[in-house]
Write a protein that binds this DNA or RNA. Structure first.
Lengths: 353, 353
DNA sequence: CTGTTAGCGCGTTCAA
DNA sequence: TTGAACGCGCTAACAG
């Protein structure tokens, strides 16, 4: 009981396969009589075109591949949601491939996409993978979103540096001085840009830096929070490299008895849905995640359709500071506290836990 | 600059396409000399097999399609994550298709999968879609997870009824009496089973029921919470049809000044990661979501490989009660309160807001 | 061990 | 307007 092919339909309708194809694709001239015969046969056989075969002959799969580093957390699921919505609207399918630990694995994943997709959206932070990809895959439209400014490659990047500066300046403006940073994993370009922004803003304000390395995960944020709370003199503010870690850190700090935001303010990055749900609500830098995903997908599709027109633009997404209760209370105590926080212990300079 | 084909490789290596194929697929006997020549040509041309063409010839795509109703919320993203992990391990790709509002759209999505996937996992709650699918798609292995007990169709269902009973019994055991239920959307089988479990458990305890219909979304939970808090005599416990709604309701109740769990206990369903992160932590019925996803994927793959062996089993996942602070505090006041709650106002019987 | 050939299922010329 | 034939890129029989 195999599925019917176009040939079966043609036989049953007593026409050629070409006519069947013409009817189904809508292209080419067809008599109303043949159309009717074909449609009837299609109904009777419950025929559905084999998209794989169709792809081979048209060399269009109507599928976009998405290469992700991971699937944990709301950031990526929101992003995929945005892409999925856009894909549906444009008649495209989405094939996701995630959890590529190293560059080699990622590039293998990219290679395995050949003949399966019309275009690629790459978020894998392994820059090498991208280079490999653009070389290995022959002329496959690629949109990069891994934070690296690949000149000449269509890409979307977040202004991580600028966002981080905004975060720190906001904290300083509300009276915080001992501002710690929970960084994303080393080697991750986004994480590094955010940390750089933090370092510069702190330096510009003449404040000492305090950095703990995390892994962009909630658990790592929690770990960092525990360690920060255990310090002889805990920070009065924490800027985390993303919302996931911010939430983890917030829980740890609260569990340690610190009151947020009175004793310690917290700022995250991304504005995942969860940020508005935790208590207190998390101040963060909003990236319209789903919208960015939608935009990315639409752009690859445009890339595919242009088929040559060089879109080598590097679109920049500027995060917007969203202030929520996790950072709103002014530093209590006023002068006294300011004095104390102004006494910068040199030992904290560039402290790396 | 088109991508190299197997023919290009064959020419350059001065062998036949068959030999190239043999080297690349690992099947068939090949001389070390030929292998070397082929590999060298492959390197030189940066050749990557066209998986679409390969699929057509082997009639295996190594891709599983996943039909979802939606992509919102952590439940589905966790599920997909579990599937993705399993897919990677088994050498499969995942193609997701979501947001199918009606049965027709869903079945269209299923049809569009023909020739694109080797098997399907269907979570669309539109039962019709499944029937259509099994009819329309010729012999495509399908695993159903939409809550309907399709006899003869391989499926995985959650014991929603039993879970709901557990939830209610837990609340009663900890002294709650005025237990409201925020139900999922009408027509959703899972939602209806959970509500039925609630109704029965309440009836068995001789308690009045109070049901508000939600939509499985956080926002709908929040709405429900607002309305419950506004009642002249708010419930002392809320059992929500899923964690999303539970979290929404909890926020609304808290914002209304009610203390959780002292004044009102809350229990959800699913145990999404967020459940452990809200404060107080949410008591819920744990479904190991990612693991279930992994299981589902492994089962479709087994279905594909068996290729005939009838696996028509209906696997049942039994949710496990996870007690967290949102329901732990015993009903305060003891006897006095019990008396008050025992005065069941008949007007509440089956109250539908 | 290797090369030739025939499909996989479909879209698409090119004659008729 | 229609149909026969070819090709998409690859694997799998079958000969050699």
């Amino acid at each position: 009981m195999k599925a019917a092919t176009i040939r079966d339909v043609a036989e049953r309708a007593d026409v050629s396969v070409a006519s069947v194809s013409r009817v189904l694709t809508g292209a080419g001239p067809v008599t109303e009589t043949t159309r009717a015969k074909v449609m009837q046969a299609v109904e009777a056989l419950q025929y559905v075109p084999h998209s794989g075969a169709r792809s081979l002959s048209t060399s269009r799969t109507h599928t976009i591949g998405v290469i992700l580093p991971d699937l944990y957390g709301e950031f990526f699921s929101e992003l995929i949601r945005g892409m999925d919505v856009a894909a549906r609207a444009l008649g495209y399918h989405l094939i996701v491939s995630s959890s590529h630990d190293d560059a080699e694995e990622a590039s293998a994943a990219i290679r395995s996409m050949r003949g399966r997709v019309d275009g690629l959206i790459v978020l894998s932070p392994h820059v090498d993978a991208v280079n490999l990809a653009s070389g290995l895959v022959g002329r496959l439209p690629i949109l990069v979103m891994n934070g690296g400014m690949d000149e000449g490659t269509p890409s979307i990047v977040v202004d991580n540096h600028g966002g981080a500066v905004q975060a720190v300046e906001h904290l300083i403006a509300t009276g915080r001085r001992r501002i710690a940073h929970i960084a994303g994993p080393t080697g991750n370009l986004e994480a590094e840009s955010r940390m750089a922004g933090y370092m510069e803003a702190m330096a510009a304000a003449g404040l000492p830096t305090m950095v703990i390395e995390g892994a962009f995960s909630q658990a790592s944020g929690q770990d960092a929070g525990v360690r920060l709370a255990a310090l002889p003199e805990p920070p009065d503010a924490v800027f985390a490299g993303n919302d996931n870690m911010a939430v983890g850190a917030m829980l740890a700090l609260q569990d340690a008895g610190l009151v947020v935001p009175d004793q310690v303010a917290i700022v995250g990055f991304d504005d995942i849905p969860l940020a508005a749900l935790v208590r207190p609500g998390l101040t963060t830098l909003r990236i319209k995640i789903a919208e960015t995903g939608r935009n990315a997908l639409e752009r690859v599709v445009r890339l595919i359709r242009a088929d040559g027109d060089a879109d080598t633009a590097c679109e920049v997404v500027r995060p917007e500071l969203v202030v929520r209760p996790s950072s709103t209370a002014e530093r209590p105590g006023g002068a006294a506290d300011l004095i104390r926080t102004d006494v910068q212990k040199p030992s904290l300079e560039g402290e790396k836990l």
